[in-house]
């Protein structure tokens, strides 16, 4: 069963000068946790707004739960939960007032659907008399999610729910999403954090309005062709410059405590050459190993591939 479907959707701004969404096609199955992964300005929010019927596409068609986003916008509006990019809460209203307001706007009450939000809401309930503006980022995020869930939507659109939230709250948030998924809710979520991609069932990598790839996280990693190496030495910055100057290097970038390096001949193992080269350059404590690429490696690779094509 398909829950969301986009066919060649295009959206332009500024008198057609800026192409925010460029011929995007993808589909999300019922009950799936689907991630749109890409940096700011990649077109993620525009896609969400088209699907929540807030924006009209300039080209292509899209359906949500079988309804057309242009024609059947009224039906869609009542059935989706939406958390826009910024935590869209009334800062001057308390936690409880926010929640009960959104509940009545969607024609329900907190009591009626308390079961659904209980897990999340219980964490902020002790602060229910506090104004939303005075909450920390993590708590705002939980409140916003509660508000989006209060009318028992069959599908949730979460636009960058973890941006600006610390690592701990992010982790908690993804755990909540997993529990919601178990209740059968389809979730479409966007994030600029590549490490969150692995927590989705399937992901679409998106850059400059274009879909780079749609697959399961492991599928994306598998599709990385060639070998990738992690390398470190006692002088990381110098190491980076030296590696970039190395004749066989295709790309080299920092990745945690290592630098990740790929070579022009992608399947060849250059370990020996690299070690010799670095020794000559006076590096000490050099360590090199072959690694499985992460989603972030794949993303960078695809972006660079695109660039070299262009």
């Amino acid at each position: 069963m398909t829950s969301v479907e986009l066919n060649n959707v295009t959206k332009k701004y500024d008198k057609e000068k800026v192409v925010a969404v460029d011929d995007v096609s993808l589909s999300v199955s019922k009950g799936e946790l689907f991630g749109l992964i890409g940096p700011d300005g990649a077109g993620k929010s525009s896609i969400f707004r088209i699907l929540t019927t807030l924006l009209l596409p300039d080209g292509g068609t899209a359906t949500v739960e079988g309804y057309d986003v242009v024609k059947d916008y009224k039906t869609i509006r009542g059935n989706v939960g939406y958390m826009p990019g910024r935590f869209s809460l009334y800062q001057d209203l308390t936690v409880e007032e926010n929640l009960s307001f959104f509940a009545t706007v969607f024609g329900t009450s907190i009591e009626e659907n308390y079961e659904l939000i209980k897990d999340i809401y219980i964490q902020i309930e002790p602060f229910k008399k506090r104004r939303a503006g005075k909450l920390s980022g993590g708590m705002k995020q939980k409140l916003a999610l509660s508000c989006a869930l209060i009318h028992k939507p069959s599908i949730l659109f979460l636009d960058e729910p973890t941006t600006g939230v610390d690592a701990v709250s992010r982790k908690e948030f993804w755990e909540m999403l997993k529990r919601l998924k178990q209740q059968g809710i389809t979730i479409m979520v966007s994030t600029p954090y590549m490490d969150e991609a692995t927590l989705c069932d399937r992901i679409a990598l998106i850059q400059s309005g274009k879909i780079l790839s749609v697959d399961t996280p492991s599928g994306i990693v598998k599709s990385y062709h060639g070998k990738l190496f992690a390398i470190k030495s006692d002088a990381m910055y110098k190491l980076m410059n030296d590696l970039r100057a190395f004749e066989h290097t295709r790309s080299c970038f920092a990745f945690g405590e290592y630098h990740h390096i790929s070579f022009k001949e992608r399947d060849k193992d250059y370990t020996e050459e690299v070690l010799n080269y670095l020794q000559a350059k006076g590096h000490t404590g050099v360590e090199i190993k072959s690694v499985t690429p992460a989603i972030e490696d794949c993303f960078i690779d695809m972006v660079e591939e695109k660039k070299s094509e262009a």
Binding site: G38, P39, D40, A42, E160, T163, G164, P192, M194, Q207, Y237, M240, F253, A254, E296, F299, I300, V303, E304
Partner: peptide, 21 residues
């Protein structure tokens, strides 16, 4: 670096290293 793509994020860190140098 909030919200910046992974490539730009690394280019940004290159600048920090240069400055530190």
């Amino acid at each position: 670096t909030s919200g910046v793509d992974p490539v730009a994020r690394r280019q940004f860190w290159d600048l920090i290293y240069q400055a530190a140098d």
